[in-house]
Design a protein around this nucleic acid. Sequence first.
DNA 1: CCTGAAAAATTATTCGC
DNA 2: GCGAATAATTTTTCAGG
Lengths: 154, 154
Amino acid sequence: MSFELDATNRKILDALVRNARIPVTELSKEVGLSKTPVAYRIKQMEDAGLITGYRAILSPLKLGLTNVTYVEITVSDTRQKALEEFNAAIRKVPEVEECYMIAGGFDYQVKLRSRSMAHYRQIMAEKISTLPYVTSTTSYVAMEAIIEQSWVNL
Amino acid sequence: MSFELDATNRKILDALVRNARIPVTELSKEVGLSKTPVAYRIKQMEDAGLITGYRAILSPLKLGLTNVTYVEITVSDTRQKALEEFNAAIRKVPEVEECYMIAGGFDYQVKLRSRSMAHYRQIMAEKISTLPYVTSTTSYVAMEAIIEQSWVNL
DNA sequence: CCTGAAAAATTATTCGC
DNA sequence: GCGAATAATTTTTCAGG
């Protein structure tokens, strides 16, 4: 299940995470091998599902997405079927960047990105509060991003 | 500051977020223009800082990073200088995937990724609790990822 | 499992319209 | 913004250690 990485694969991944478009030619210099094994290793890691894809990373700010809010959501029905229904519904909301089910209570931790506070309120009213089985939400608005990591859903 | 996107640029970005390695040739078919303007638009958006980079996306699970924890951190000193010190320190912790300062109290919301609960405890003890000005932390362990969005720091 | 180089394919750039 | 010609880069393949 979990993929064993040697030092070389680690270097390859590190370079690819920094720059998805680095040519194998250049990568092979970085890791100190010839192109053949480097290309082979990349394909291997892709096929194993370790590398799941390559994405352009956009600046949320330049896109006008200046607001980040964390929302804690409590649901009323915690049976498997209800949870799956909730999960399916929230997956369709593009403004939701992350969603984890939290241990302890049956709450969800959700990260939202919005253009403004007004836009945030609209998302909450139209797309979050209306999700199945939602009973209450508590929001935490981010003032400043210290470490930010995400690609943007357009 | 904020970049104005027409429908074409939107399509280009959407394709590039889905696949950072799509050739301009193919992209131009998708958006219904010839290669020349598409290449020009991409460069334009890169230069404007709208596209900040291209990254390989890795599977945290296949890397053995099975645990996600959100940690709320309270700091004792909220003067600018202290906060900047904290920010600089937390930026050096590779296990921290996200960190936002939250409005209201002066708390931070931090997302951690770890290999196990034992590993999580070690990160907390060695790298989070020891951060400057930290007075208390509260952790929320994720049971299940519904929507997950991150690249991994190796 | 790696090297090195030749060959093949793909991709990006340029430019007149 | 188009489209074709050109140029450059990149990937693939393979014999050999």
